[in-house]
Deep mutational scan, measured.
Amino acid sequence: KLETFPLDVLVNTAAEDLPRGVDPSRKENHLSDEDFKAVFGMTRSAFANLPLWKQQNLKKEKGLF
């Protein structure tokens, strides 16, 4: 399991300012399950079932792209 970080560490943070080991294209993977659901309004599995373009739009909207 990946290390999780608080939302404010990941949202609207440039790649070079992210904690070590965080993939800038997969910031959402480093949210706790609770934060993930609070941000996206759905579970990880529901998010994973969305088309890629919709996932990317949601990530942009939430500052996690």
Rank of each mutant, 00 (worst) to 15 (best):
L50P: 00
H30P: 04
K1S: 06
V9D: 11
E3W: 04
Q55C: 00
R44W: 02
L31Q: 01
A48E: 12
E3D: 05
N57Q: 15
K27T: 14
T13Y: 15
E28L: 03
L2C: 06
F5I: 10
V39D: 02
F40Q: 05
Q56L: 14
S45T: 12
L18I: 08
F47M: 00
A38M: 09
A38I: 10
P19K: 05
F47R: 00
K62G: 04
K60H: 13
L64W: 06
A48G: 12
D17C: 07
K59L: 05
L2F: 15
G63K: 07
W53R: 10
V39K: 07
H30M: 05
S25W: 11
K59G: 00
E34F: 04
H30T: 03
A38Q: 09
F5K: 15
V22S: 03
V22M: 04
L10I: 07
K62C: 12
L58I: 13
S32Y: 01
R26P: 06
A38S: 12
K1F: 09
K37Q: 13
L10M: 13
K60Y: 04
L50D: 04
E34R: 12
T4I: 04
L7W: 05
L10S: 07
L50M: 14
T43A: 14
T4L: 08
A46M: 09
D8Q: 09
R20K: 14
E3F: 08
A48Y: 11
N29T: 05
L10C: 01
L50E: 06
E34G: 10
D33W: 00
T13W: 10
L52N: 15
A38K: 13
A48Q: 06
K1Q: 04
M42D: 02
K27H: 09
K62S: 10
T43Y: 03
H30C: 03
L18A: 08
F5W: 14
V22K: 05
V22R: 01
E28S: 03
R44K: 14
E61M: 09
A48P: 00
W53G: 13
K37E: 09
R20T: 13
K27W: 07
A48I: 09
L10Y: 03
L2N: 15
W53Y: 11
L31A: 02
G41D: 13
K59C: 05
A46F: 04
R44S: 04
M42S: 02
S32K: 08
R44G: 01
P6L: 01
L64H: 01
N57W: 09
L58S: 01
L58E: 02
T4Y: 13
N12V: 02
N12I: 01
R26E: 10
N57C: 13
R26T: 13
A14I: 08
F36D: 04
P24G: 08
K59V: 02
S32F: 01
A15K: 11
Q55P: 00
A14T: 13
D8C: 04
R44I: 02
L31D: 00
E61K: 11
A14V: 08
G63C: 05
E61N: 07
E34Y: 14
S45W: 06
D23H: 09
E3G: 13
E61H: 05
T43E: 15
K60V: 12
L58N: 00
K1N: 10
N12S: 07
W53P: 09
S32I: 03
L31S: 04
Q55F: 00
G21E: 09
S45G: 14
A14P: 14
F47C: 00
V22L: 07
Q55A: 04
G21V: 05
K60P: 00
K59Q: 05
A46S: 11
L58R: 01
A48R: 11
E16R: 09
R26Q: 14
E3K: 15
G63M: 06
N49P: 00
L52V: 14
L64A: 08
F65R: 07
L52Q: 11
R44F: 01
A38D: 12
P24W: 04
K54W: 07
G63R: 05
W53Q: 05
E28R: 02
S25N: 15
N29H: 15
S32M: 04
L18R: 03
G41V: 00
K59H: 03
W53E: 14
L50Q: 06
T43N: 12
T43Q: 15
D35R: 01
T13R: 07
A14G: 11
L2M: 15
G21A: 11
P24H: 04
F5Y: 15
P24F: 04
K1D: 08
E34T: 15
G21L: 03
F5P: 14
L64T: 04
E28M: 07
S45P: 12
D35I: 01
N49K: 14
N49L: 12
E16L: 03
P19W: 00
F40D: 01
D8H: 09
M42W: 00
R20A: 15
D8T: 09
F65Y: 09
E34Q: 12
L7G: 08
K37S: 11
Q55V: 01
A38R: 12
L52T: 12
E16C: 13
S45N: 13
G21N: 11
L52E: 15
E28D: 07
L2D: 15
G63W: 03
V9Q: 08
N49H: 09
Q55M: 02
R20Q: 14
F65L: 15
T4P: 06
W53N: 14
R26D: 06
P19M: 05
D8Y: 03
Q56W: 07
D17H: 06
N57S: 13
S45I: 10
T13A: 11
A38P: 01
L7Q: 09
N49F: 04
K27R: 15
T13F: 04
R20I: 12
S25C: 10
L7F: 07
